[in-house]
């Protein structure tokens, strides 16, 4: 819980983070600012997607339930729609990072591209007033020079501050944060593709034929798919996996989340309809049991459409993942090595 705001002073920027009831301050003097990097992200689009899905789901729920309760549904759907409109009007999301000689800090108050660009346009003259202007060509030449000669280091460390045991002039090795990227073969992504293809084949089966064991197998398949997605996301973090395969894993994750939400909304609508129809009343010919509910859900046209949609999406995703893996992964596999005898 907390907020983050950025303030411009006479000679520095002040980042104020409110954590609980304590304000934390960080100052960045204009003379020390080395770079400001803005990276557009997909966070706002993901939120838009989720909010649109919520609005649609709630609207479907409101239209499904009886009079009285539908007002709550419509109000919630309206709120989701307002949040969606606000999110869209704020524009694309981004991450803004400020770099000084001693630290690199994410400016959490600048999370929208338009706003970040506006703030940068406002503080650039202040920074240039302290440091002087730097043309792009000059920056390129100086960056190449710095890369050729090594990055600028402190001109000297006082002798009194050196460790007692280290000889003069000798420095400890510099440890680069993060280090080199980890090698990742993409096998988990391949497994995820196969699981998606299996899901595509199995998901429409309950529409035609249904029993408890099949339902249990489908649950296991769902858990396996979820596990594969999580494993793929974990494995690709800080690895050298190509961006296309990373996108595939994230798309599968987004699709899974969307399907869970849609399935939940659809289930609620169906259950409300069943209750309204009086199919599960005490004097009903069909006694109440989870299996009865599942059977009734199976007959619902919304559930059938969702199953088919899920199957088609699984097939598309699975094929996409396999094609990507075939195209990108073979060259990435480590060659066989002769073991020393």
């Amino acid at each position: 819980m907390g907020s983050c705001t950025l303030w411009a002073g006479g000679d520095h920027l002040l980042l104020v983070e409110l954590r609980g009831f304590t304000e934390m301050y960080r100052r960045f003097y204009f003379r020390d600012v080395q770079a400001i990097i803005i990276r557009p992200t997909e966070r706002a689009r993901t939120w838009s997607f989720l909010l649109a899905l919520s609005a649609l789901g709630l609207a479907a729920l409101a239209s499904g339930v009886g009079a009285g309760w539908n007002i709550v549904g419509w109000i919630l759907a309206g709120l989701a729609l307002i949040a969606l409109i606000v999110n869209l009007s704020l524009g694309r999301s981004c991450e803004c990072t400020l770099q000084t000689p001693l630290q690199t800090v994410a400016l959490r108050s600048l999370r929208r591209l338009r706003r970040a660009r506006g703030v940068l346009a406002r503080i650039r003259p202040l920074i240039e007033l302290e440091q002087g202007p730097l043309a792009n060509e000059e920056a390129l030449v100086r960056a190449r020079e710095a890369a050729a000669t090594g990055s600028p280091e402190p001109a000297g460390i006082p002798v009194a501050m050196e460790p007692a045991g280290s000889p003069a002039g000798e420095r400890p090795p510099v440890v680069v944060p993060g280090g080199p990227p980890r090698h990742e073969s993409g096998r988990v992504h391949e497994a995820l593709s196969y699981v998606l293809l299996l899901s595509a084949a199995v998901t429409p089966v309950p529409v035609l034929y249904f029993n408890v064991w099949l339902n249990a197998a489908l649950c296991l398949l769902f858990l396996g798919r979820l596990g594969c997605i999580i494993a793929a996301l974990v494995r690709q973090k800080s690895s050298d996996l190509p961006i296309e395969l990373r996108r595939f894993a994230w798309t599968a994750f987004g699709w899974e989340c969307g399907m869970i939400a849609a399935g939940f909304a659809c289930g609620v609508v169906v259950v409300v309809r069943i209750l309204n129809n009086g199919a599960l009343l005490a004097d009903s010919p069909t006694p109440f049991s989870p299996l009865t509910v599942m059977n009734l859900m199976r007959d619902d046209p919304g559930t059938r459409i969702l199953s088919l949609l899920s199957s088609v999406a699984s097939l598309s995703l699975g094929v996409w993942g396999l094609v990507l893996h075939r195209r990108l992964a073979p060259s990435r596999r480590e060659p066989w090595r002769i073991l020393p005898i």
Binding site: R31, D32, V33, Q34, A35, I36, I37, I38, R39, P40, Q99, T100, P101, R117, L120, R124, I127, E128, Q131, G132, L134, A139, R142, A143
Partner: peptide, 8 residues
């Protein structure tokens, strides 16, 4: 979007 300054 990278903006660099002479301090770099």
């Amino acid at each position: 979007e990278i903006s660099v300054f002479p301090a770099l």
